[in-house]
Design a protein around this nucleic acid. Structure first.
Lengths: 242, 242
DNA sequence: CTAATAGTGTCTGTTAGACAGTATGGG
DNA sequence: CCCATACTGTCTAACAGACACTATTAG
């Protein structure tokens, strides 16, 4: 029996299979707090609740490709930093049928986040995450005008994990730079760190640490249009990162 | 249209679905190096190559339950520390059909690892992971008598990620204790850290750090049967961890 | 000049590495 | 007594927090 004969005789439909989907946490910083983009469900099940943009995984599509497709089709974004978060597989997480979902985290700079928001379709949810010792407790989602947003399915768990992962990776990976424009000031970088951590940082220690690490390079340019001393602009120097 | 009417009309077979499996990295420390338990494939495809124990996810089973079932049925272990690693979804990762696999990491103390090994069925693969700046490069699997083990499918990637994840979590979570017996000496704890990191650690700094952290409690007992000064035995104090 | 924020210098406390030195079991 | 390993004390370098200080822009 050759390998191709074996494959011809293999029955791929022998067992009932769970459906497989991806769900995306499109994350950015809004007004000093972490925020995610949600869709309001219009159809059953759970109409009126707020859900992460997602979609089923095609049979000829990798998981990463499915996530990129959702990013393109539901948010209109051509490219973003995408990272697999975790796979959620509770049996009753979706009342329609058994759906296992691979959650992805997408990080958007403020301008890209605002652009998606302006396109309609998606709504910004400001995420409240009690400190809870860096572990990140249950998440609360609130619209920008302060109204609480009730989350569909197990999407509150997914959002909580996204914030937790972001916090954990903030200090030893380049995630913060994915939330910033190409050029940024050290103050903006610190603001991103403070928003994600939900805590204030020591300015001089932060600056010292960031400069010593060697991940950022001065551009030589400075901020424009400030009413006070303009800050130096830096860019992320990918070549020197780990 | 009520929610139950909607569900009745939903067609769960509208699209072709990938199959969903779990694969387990059963990890322990053997002779000062990280090791995993592998099965030799006897059937097509890829007969003779070495694979992680795995199985398909049942339609009424969570991912964690599927992993526990594989642990029980293929390794004969009732319980172990199990943690989801990552989900692998390349389109051609298995030549039989499209299979997406959720990889799990199981941590076994030396005694449990040896017991599974004695039961036959599974073989120990000593993992060689070049340092590569903590990121963990490609992994090499070698049997305990030194013969290289060729890995099936994308299982080399899964093993590499397992070692990388273990390294990353070693210092700020309790993973090291899952690889040790109930009672252990500080030397044994340091040996586990050194095996996982593949690097020597400073003894006095290590002991100071472990004791200051407060995660371990002295049992009052000491090692027996040594030809020299017996070391103090500790246990992991879960109540004081984070 | 003032207001406001950018950015630096320096003191101090905490923690890690190095390494010599002491403690304690068996023989 | 010796050997081997467990364990401790202490010096030093690296680094983080605190905070006062200087720099630079607009008006």
């Amino acid at each position: 029996m050759t390998e191709s004969e074996f494959l011809a005789g293999y029955d791929p439909a022998a067992y009932e299979r769970p459906a497989l989907a991806v769900d995306l946490v499109l994350m950015g910083i809004r007004a000093g707090r972490p925020a995610a983009l949600l869709m309001r469900r219009t159809q059953l099940p759970q109409p009126g609740l707020w859900a992460l943009p997602g979609g089923f995984v095609g049979i000829d599509e990798t998981l990463d490709e499915a996530a990129e497709r959702v990013l393109r089709d539901k948010a209109g974004i051509a490219r973003a930093r995408l990272e697999q978060l975790y796979t959620f597989g509770a049996v009753d997480r979706d009342p329609r049928m058994r759906i296992v979902s691979v959650a992805y985290l997408a990080l958007l700079p403020a301008a890209a986040f605002a652009e998606v928001l302006a396109g309609g379709g998606l709504t910004a949810a400001v995420l409240g995450v009690p400190w809870a010792g860096e572990a990140g407790g249950p998440v609360s989602a609130v619209s920008e005008d302060g109204a609480p947003l009730a989350l569909a399915f197990d999407h509150a768990d997914i959002l909580a994990l996204a914030v937790k992962r972001l916090r954990g990776k903030l200090d030893y990976t380049d995630v913060a730079f994915a939330l910033l424009p190409e050029q940024f000031t050290l103050r903006q970088l610190q603001d991103v760190h403070e928003a994600v951590l939900g805590a204030a940082l020591n300015t001089s220690a932060f600056r010292r640490r960031m400069r010593d690490r060697g991940w950022i390079a001065p551009t030589g340019a400075r901020e424009a249009g400030t009413a006070f001393r303009p800050a130096e602009l830096f860019r992320f120097d990918r070549s020197r990162q780990s």
